[in-house]
Simulated assay, not measured.
Amino acid sequence: MMPSSLAVLRDFMLQRYDDLKARLTRRLGCADMASDALQDTWLRLEGKDELGPVDSPGAYLLRMAVNVAVDQQRAENRRLTSSEAEALLAVPDPAPGPAQMAQGREELDTLVRVMGELSERQRGVLLAVRLEGLPQAEVATRMGVSLRTVERELRSAHEHCATRVRNLLSP
């Protein structure tokens, strides 16, 4: 009865381990990587139940070990180093904190209150241009006024809001 391919590969690996390691070290350029790859190769062989016929056990084991090393290298390249992980953890959270959120709410409330002081036309122009993003010419057509009037009302609304908000929020 012929020994199974797995038995042949295991025996070959046990008898020629040093030769396989030397060849793999030359191929990979690192003895530690070669040792790790051969160990994982052995574990993969141990985990197999069947294997088809193998013509050249040495070439088969070497190719298998190289593939294992490539897989290990790919996995290693996907992992973050500890310094990379620390750098990511040190990145400040761009989300506003509670104090910034409270300040933003206060500024928004102040702006809404100040916009209530505008004339109806100024408020309509400001909201249409800045909030809805409409072109000034379209706002002029909708409101039945000239483009120059829309430009003037928008500038006046900006100046009023900027001045009043600055005065109300400054300590």
Rank of each mutant, 00 (worst) to 15 (best):
M1Y: 13
P3C: 13
S4I: 04
L9I: 07
R10P: 02
L14P: 00
Q15P: 00
R16I: 00
D19A: 15
K21P: 01
K21N: 10
R23Q: 09
R23P: 00
R23K: 11
C30I: 04
A31P: 05
D32G: 15
A34E: 05
D36G: 10
A37T: 14
A37N: 07
L38P: 00
L38W: 02
D40M: 09
E50K: 06
G52Q: 14
G52D: 12
A59S: 08
L62I: 05
M64V: 08
A65E: 00
D71Y: 05
D71G: 08
Q72K: 15
R74Y: 11
N77Y: 15
N77T: 09
N77K: 11
T81Y: 03
S82K: 14
S82W: 12
A85D: 00
A95R: 15
P96I: 13
Q100T: 08
R105G: 12
R105H: 13
E107C: 08
L111I: 05
V114T: 06
E117R: 13
R121Q: 10
L127S: 01
A128F: 12
V129Y: 04
R130T: 03
G133R: 08
L134I: 03
P135C: 13
P135T: 04
Q136V: 01
Q136N: 04
A137P: 07
R142Q: 10
M143V: 02
G144K: 10
L147Q: 09
L147F: 05
V150S: 10
E151R: 14
E153T: 00
S156I: 03
A157L: 11
H158A: 08
R164L: 01
R164K: 02
V165T: 14
N167S: 10
S170K: 05
